[in-house]
Write a protein that binds this DNA or RNA. Sequence first.
DNA 1: GGCCAGGTGTAAA
DNA 2: TTTACACATGGC
Length: 217
Amino acid sequence: MTELSDSWELYKALERLDLLQNSQPLWWPQHGTFEVVVGAILTQNTQWTRVTVSLNNLVKSDLMTLEALSQIDPEILMELIRPSGLINAKSKNIILLCRSIIEEFGSFEAFKQDVTREWLLGQKGVGPETADSILCYACERSVMVVDSYTARLLRAFGYEFENYDELQEWCERGIREHCDELILQRMFAHFHGMIVEYVKSNSKGKEVSIERISSAP
DNA sequence: GGCCAGGTGTAAA
DNA sequence: TTTACACATGGC
């Protein structure tokens, strides 16, 4: 298979490769918790292995809570997240986001229930990918995260998309057509995770090889 | 040494 | 409105 009719076909092909066997079931560590919100900011233009060091620093320091991070000294936070880079912006953005969540929703649980994509996109340092990562992996909503890996993989199959939203729409549509609403959240979470893992281990530079997908049984 | 990483905001053109 | 660049750090 070197042509895709829809995203469902891609999903099924990736699933046969069993790419998530060593990850958590829904891929993102600490799925459904506040930690995902922090991780979503920290991982911007940064390798995940670097993010785990920072997340660990915060957990060890007993600071991985909405309340603690809304009050932390920016300089202290910068030191704790230094391993993830872009520390000036990320430190400020994390603190601002935590304060806004408390102000607007009061608690992480309420935020999880009530936040909208529009609200997230209005926060400094939160673009479409970060917003959707938070919605899908922290708030457990039926939203598919797409990223540069997704665009690269589909480009290898001959697809080009105008922007983030069109790429997302294409990815979500094929899954929605084949799945019940009740499992969409997990499907999307899984789909994005498989794409990331596939592209990470089947690329040279920014060139993605679709060999393993194409020759899947 | 140069390129890349689970992007976003800002300033030129 | 689009494009280009800065942002920090560390692995390869």
